[in-house]
Design a protein around this nucleic acid. Structure first.
Lengths: 251, 251
DNA sequence: CGCCTGGTTATTATCGACAATTGCCAAGTC
DNA sequence: GACTTGGCAATTGTCGATAATAACCAGGCG
């Protein structure tokens, strides 16, 4: 039975899991996934580079099996492509695809999940979000971009988790790393960190108010803002921002 | 090197692959994936059911390794959930998530990919799409719903392939099985098959005309139509269809 | 002189066995 | 009598080795 859905012992299990960590986190596969994802996102592996299972297995001191499973997971995040009998290769993300697909998909996911989450959010979760925003504000002061990104990701993930939608969360986890990869590619420096923190403060306030009218617009703004800022700083000006929301009048 | 991106021998490789099959298709993992996916989509495995690697390994006459990799792939399609050290369990898809996330995400993907595909579509591809629609029309005559669904999937997949966007295709392949699962769950019978074929004929005509103004609306209609028909027949009337495109005025 | 053909090697895919983890159950203790 | 604690059984996770696959290269043939 899936943890948390047990017949009678749910409480005991939930306690056990809570006492430990949210995730078992240990598992060679998971460790490999995390290491490789970070390497790809930060650009240590260039697009097109082949990842060889035996080489990585030796490098990490594990057998090929967990490496191969890690490959499948990374493929689900779109960070690598798998060609049967040929290997896995680091995927490229074009600015067009970023704007045309990844952001609209993220928008679709959060437009559904965030208002849903706001309507049923526990005080504990709100407090945790508050802590995350504070941590972002502090990291902005000290100029720690990596930390801000980490809190940013966690903020959104926790919010979407609260919506309780398995599929919204699964899809978000699939697109999120690709979006983060773009952030590292397009704006590795000179981001206005204070603005990022402020944006999340604004979103958190909207979550607290839980105004069904205001929230969808707040999410949309939040996502569009972060994207356009990113692109401006990188001097990438695509022909048009074709978010579904903006496409109504242009058709 | 990824097939199709070779340094000099591209032609030879492409020929070789074309002579054989589009996919190597053989691979125990792939076979297991296809079998399990079909079993889940058609409801042979109920939501919540645990898939055990050793049991399936024996059943299929393979070792646990390809089964485990198949699990990872099915998880990327949202058909199963993986709980480390606990197993994989068939995922449930609520009607709310179907309408709220899966369809909007599909809409976002196709809104980007289909116009892009239309703008650069080869005559061969158009001919293949034409064949698919004809096959659908024939299957509609003979009342073969399974065949229609198969052609339906292939029609959209081929279209999105033509767009040449790795990520649009990857995401589509991730959401598509879930949507198909809903089709089987909500409307296993009594679908108006002729209408489905006609819808695709209309979409194909729009693709042929490649009218940048008309196409986005045609896609939107196509997706919304299929969804609302599906829901009407199953007597499921959600509170509202919250597609991003329709949310502009409501905020 | 170019094309086909067979061996060679690098790499992936699969295997079967073993180790680790987890939940369960029963015995023991306060 | 309820709670803790230890062992038991079922299941997943990992291993190291082997088999299968496909690109590369050299030699032979038209």
């Amino acid at each position: 039975m899936p943890p948390g859905q047990h017949t009678s012992q749910t409480g005991r299990l939930a306690d056990k899991r809570a006492v430990k960590r949210p995730l078992p986190a240990s598992s060679r596969r998971q460790q490999v996934v995390d290491l490789l994802r970070e390497a790809i996102i930060t650009g240590q592996f260039a697009a097109g580079h082949q990842l060889k299972q035996d080489q990585l297995a030796e490098e990490f001191g594990v057998s090929p099996a967990p490496i191969r499973e890690a490959f499948r997971h990374l493929a689900s995040e779109g960070l690598v492509e798998h060609f049967p009998n040929h290997g896995v290769f680091v995927t490229d993300v074009s600015a067009e695809e970023f704007l045309g697909v990844l952001l609209p998909v993220r928008m679709a996911i959060e437009s559904y999940a965030v208002p849903l989450a706001a309507s049923q959010m526990s005080d504990e979760t709100l407090a945790e979000l508050e802590r995350l925003v504070q941590a972002m504000e502090e990291s902005a002061e000290s100029g720690d971009l990596a930390a801000i990104n980490e809190y940013d990701v966690r903020f959104h993930e926790l919010t979407i988790e609260s919506a309780g939608s398995v599929h919204a969360l699964q899809l978000w986890r699939s697109v999120q790393p690709r979006i983060r990869a773009q952030i590292y590619r397009l704006s590795p420096r000179h981001q206005n960190l204070t603005e990022i923190a402020a944006e999340h403060r604004k979103l958190l306030d909207a979550l607290k108010r839980n105004d069904a009218n205001e929230l969808p617009q707040a999410i949309e703004e939040h996502i569009v803002e972060s994207a356009t800022k990113l692109l401006k700083r990188a001097d990438v000006r695509p022909h048009r921002l074709s978010f579904p929301q903006e496409a109504t009048g242009t058709a």
